[in-house]
């Protein structure tokens, strides 16, 4: 049953008139609406205000307002904050790209497989997503740890190395963790997009003489672009705002915006400055996503 015909739309919305006029239905909405207004919209507005507060050494902020929190962050002499912002974006783009090229074949296989293990494989993709991020990072710590991790201690045991290979507390460790944790977020939208492509289109392409590879490039991939778009945006946004992974796998050696913000807030107690940094991150990320969506939508004409 479609929802587009006026008759049915009407039946849902106000067809049996008294439903809408019945104020009691508002009781379904008001508790949640109240919760979201009071504890989501208002706190975010409050945070914007906070980023314009005067800093203070004794309290979390002082009376009065200023724009210097933003100035200090952007026009820092060493470009310290902008460099961290740049690193954050590099991590975001890199993780997104790796997740896409690793996740695409997996999503395609899962979408098209006729194996009776399809449900199990689906559970494999899903389950890391449902296990806490701390647990998964901890798994990597056990494997990668520089002195006594699984890899280093095993290699040392067999005399292959003398001391250790630095596998974490560096960019490699953080990158690995990011790709691992966010890969399911790429696979799931891709899976949905590929499943919605009629397999007959692939057969049509092959019947017209295109090889499997050509079919993938010319037919499947373009049609899966909505999934690609959703997956890449999701992974990018999650990466640039991730906190646990850089802390646990990067330690103090890898600093990105979110770790910097939490450091400013919890360790340095510089709330206005931390709020300003958080907004610089949000605006940069938001603009990046906006232009990306604008750019990619050019390639999605004719696809719903």
């Amino acid at each position: 049953m479609t929802t587009s015909t006026p008759a049915i739309e009407d039946a849902r919305g106000q067809g049996t008139g008294s439903w809408l006029r019945d104020n009691r239905t508002l009781l379904l909405l008001l508790p949640t609406l109240g919760l979201f207004l009071a504890f989501l919209l208002f706190p975010y507005l409050n945070m914007i205000v906070m980023s314009f507060r005067n800093p203070s050494t004794s309290q979390v902020f002082a009376p009065g307002y200023t724009v210097f929190n933003y100035f200090d962050a952007i026009f820092d002499e060493d470009l310290y904050y902008l460099e961290i912002l740049w690193d954050t974006m590099v991590f975001g783009v890199g993780t997104t790209f790796l997740c896409l090229i690793i996740g695409y074949p997996v999503a395609y296989h899962l979408a098209r497989t006729k194996s009776r293990f399809q449900n199990l494989l689906y559970a494999f993709v899903l389950s890391p997503l449902l296990v806490g991020v701390v647990v998964r990072c901890y798994g990597w710590i056990i494997i990668l740890a520089n002195q006594d991790g699984l890899i280093n201690s095993t290699l040392r045991k067999y005399g292959i190395i003398e001391s250790f290979i630095p596998l974490m507390y560096n960019t490699f460790g953080v990158g690995l963790g990011l790709v691992h944790i966010f890969l399911p977020f790429m696979i799931l939208p891709l899976l949905g997009a590929i499943q919605s492509i009629d397999p007959a289109l692939e057969e049509a392409s092959q019947s017209l003489g295109a090889s499997r590879t050509k079919t993938m490039i010319r037919v499947v991939f373009p049609l899966s672009l909505p999934g690609v778009q959703a997956g890449t945006v999701l992974v990018f946004v999650l990466t640039i705002s991730s906190y646990v992974i850089p802390i646990l796998l990067g330690g103090l050696n890898v600093m990105i915006m979110s770790t910097l913000v939490v450091q400013q807030l919890l360790d340095a107690m510089l709330w206005p400055f931390g709020a300003a940094l958080a907004f610089i991150l949000s605006v940069t990320g938001g603009l990046a996503v906006y232009f990306y969506l604008k750019f990619t939508s050019h390639f999605m004409k004719g696809i719903a």
Partner: peptide, 13 residues
């Protein structure tokens, strides 16, 4: 025709 039927049934006013 369907709208007429739904009016008879009471699903449309």
């Amino acid at each position: 025709k369907t709208t007429t039927l739904r009016c008879i049934a009471g699903f449309e006013t």
